[in-house]
Write a protein that binds this DNA or RNA. Structure first.
Lengths: 204, 204
DNA sequence: CCCTTCAACGCACGATCGGTCGTTCGCCGG
DNA sequence: CCGGCGAACGACCGATCGTGCGTTGAAGGG
């Protein structure tokens, strides 16, 4: 208990801050990372603008912290469940199912957080875009890694290009994420599921 | 010449308005349709805020007119060249090539206009989203129509689902459009080209 | 030559933006 | 019991937002 500061209830210890950031991540998929204003976020969590703002040094820091929170959510809602499946094609399919499920369940109201902010920031250089690029690279790497495992297990042809396959797989997820809220048709998510499954089967 | 009002130079006849809208379409792919402000647009075309605003009744009308202008540009830069190819698989591939080319040439600085505004507005109901939905539906229909022609020509198996194939094709274009500006890697566009070509070949 | 027309202007409005104060108030350690 | 720490507050800053109003100036028709 020496270094532990204070385990009491007084030390909400960033609990409030975390609640703010989770709301920010949700709102950002609707309003955008730039369009999300401090005032709207404050009223969404039920506190004053200045009270909320005291937790962050600038809007940039708020944006970066929001991205980290969204990353944590994405890991626990998508990557974690996906990686729980046995290695190989099953794991790749599980990652895709988990992604499409989190879109359908509206974990973020505007669909995939990173697709939303990537579309918004991909032509706006700066630390925010850099961080998003890192995340997207990591996600694509996870898919590609799964495909390589499937190759080493003989479930996918050794002649296939894992990077190309990962691009196509991710493209179907992104395409479904974009079209699903626009048309409100769950059949679009099924299209993506079928597309990925058949694509991997074709590469066997 | 009875109905023609005045062909003189005084009647710039919407020429100015058209220049405004083309700039608006370009800016909207960077700032977003909501994020694009009248003031910034005005200074971009070199006129005063109120002078520009006199051409439109409201920001909503400006947004809708911007969409129509972007639609015209898209038709002349993508759909037209694509449809010039002979019917069948070649025409579908030409549509995709024309799309990826207009992304690479940065016809709109932020990539595909409709992908950008769809990502921004797909969870914001209203006439703007409705109009975007119509356009996206038309574009998907064009791809699907091309695939059906290819089927009737025997270039694609009669057992294939044109709607599913159109979804997958468009997804690769959207995926490339999102990732290309983010990483600045033209190889991503080639990935989409390869993906579409191989997918259609596999459905032969 | 005047008179209409109209694009474009400057200016101003209420609201909201990101951001900074000084202040209050409840908790906890000494 | 008291002093201090920190979370939250209301008020305010200059800038910018969308949107109106009244005017100016040049061009065209009678």
């Amino acid at each position: 208990m020496a270094t532990t500061p204070t385990p009491s209830r007084r030390r909400a210890d960033g609990e409030r801050r975390q609640a703010i950031l989770e709301e920010a991540a949700r709102l950002a998929t609707v309003e955008g990372l730039e369009g999300l204003s401090i005032g709207r976020l404050a009223s969404a969590v039920g506190m004053s603008k200045s009270g909320l703002y005291a937790h962050f040094k600038s809007k940039l820091e708020l944006q970066l912290a929001t991205i980290e929170t969204a990353d944590t959510v994405f890991r626990s809602e998508v990557v974690g469940p996906g990686l729980a499946a046995p290695a190989g094609t099953a794991r790749v399919l599980a990652l895709c199912d988990a992604f499409l499920s989190h879109v359908e369940r509206r974990t973020f109201p505007g669909g995939c957080f990173f697709a939303a902010v990537a579309a918004e920031m991909n032509v706006r250089p700066g630390p925010v875009r850099d961080r998003i690029g890192e995340f997207v690279g990591g996600w694509m790497g996870a898919i590609e890694g799964g495909i390589r495992e499937a190759q080493s297990l003989g479930e996918i042809s050794a002649g296939a290009d894992p990077s190309q396959l990962a691009f196509e797989t991710n493209a179907m997820l992104i395409g479904a994420n974009l079209a699903f809220p626009l048309f409100g048709d769950p059949g679009i998510l099924e299209r993506a599921r079928v597309g990925v499954r058949e694509r991997l089967r074709g590469a066997a």
